[in-house]
């Protein structure tokens, strides 16, 4: 089972960190299934509702061990730094998800476009505001008018 990279036995690697997360997820799923007493594992007809999730959690747990054990790995350093905008973009998307039902769908989408273009893409404010307004109008026409999506309305009615 080969994997990318070549840093032998590195302590921190993408595979190892993901493997640990996967092992925790598998254990959480197994715990949740075992605590759901109404879910049958096996009855006279064959496998019950919890059989497949148990099997899959078990398989994932075994596979996560293969990811965790020291082998030739892709280290974070080998991958190079993340693209400069990744963290900023995640912050903005999280802010948008929070603002979407609070200040309204269209206003939050417009603000997201403007701030993303200035903060992440390093564009001028004028270009960002124009793009934000145009994209909001396009979203309104396609999603609200044509597709009939009910976007949440905020205090400003947008």
């Amino acid at each position: 089972m080969e994997s990318g990279g070549s840093d032998q036995g590195s302590r921190f690697s993408v595979e190892r960190v993901f493997g640990i997360a996967l092992a925790i997820l598998s254990l959480v799923c197994i715990f949740n299934l075992s605590s759901s007493s109404y879910l049958v594992f096996w009855d006279e007809w064959g496998p019950g509702p919890s059989w497949l999730p148990y099997v899959l959690s078990g398989i994932l747990l075994v596979l996560s061990v293969f990811l965790i054990v020291p082998r030739s790995r892709t280290t974070f350093a080998q991958l190079g730094a993340s693209p400069p905008g990744t963290v900023k973009y995640i912050v903005l998307v999280l802010a948008l998800a929070w603002a979407f039902p609070v200040i309204g769908g269209l206003l939050s989408l417009c603000l997201f476009v403007v701030i993303e273009m200035v903060w992440v893409e390093k564009n001028k404010w004028s270009i960002a505001i124009a793009t934000g307004l145009i994209s909001t109008v396009v979203v309104w026409v396609i999603f609200v008018k044509l597709l009939g999506v009910n976007l949440p309305l905020g205090p400003f009615g947008t």
Binding site: G85, Y89, L92, V93, L94, L96, A97, F100, P101, G105, L109, F112, V113, E116, M117, V120, E121, N123, T131, S135, V139, F143, L147, V149, N150, L151, P152
Partner: peptide, 30 residues
Amino acid sequence: RPYIAPLIGVLTLIGAFCLNNNPFDIWLAI
């Protein structure tokens, strides 16, 4: 090129939301 990232962000979140009109789907998509 500069317009792709904000456009995808908008389409992702509105696309996740619009099938069930449920803000929880936005968090799932993220």
